[in-house]
Amino acid sequence: MLALNRIHATRIVATPSALDSAQWPDDRLVFRIAADEALITPPMANAVVSDPYAIVVADSGFAGAWLPMEEALPLLEHACEWELPRERPAFAQGSVAGIPAKLWIEKDRVLLIVPAPFVADFEERMA
């Protein structure tokens, strides 16, 4: 049974070029969820981007769970109509079991992320 936990993150909205040129510490996962938006976990106390108007906020609006690849693939084959990227690691976004989801795909495991308000539905649908 899949169990998702809230993801503690820093969410940054800034110009695409500011995000492109930002340096992130190696111990963080940085998901570029839009051209002008990044989600960084674990959170960074003082994230800096070269955009004076950047919105930088602590965020706990997403929840996620790591799954070993051998468990993730059969689940995604059923829940995901689109083709997963083939490179590793890879970040992908799209509908999974009818819920807006984000996938961080490493060599042997996958992080499934959905907005926290959809966790109950997502867990039930992926069961």
């Binding site: 800034a14 002008d36 919105i55 906020v57 965020d59």
Partner: peptide, 10 residues
């Protein structure tokens, strides 16, 4: 020239 963040679910 604006940045927009929807925080409804957060």
């Amino acid at each position: 020239d604006v940045r927009i963040l929807n925080q409804t679910m957060s």
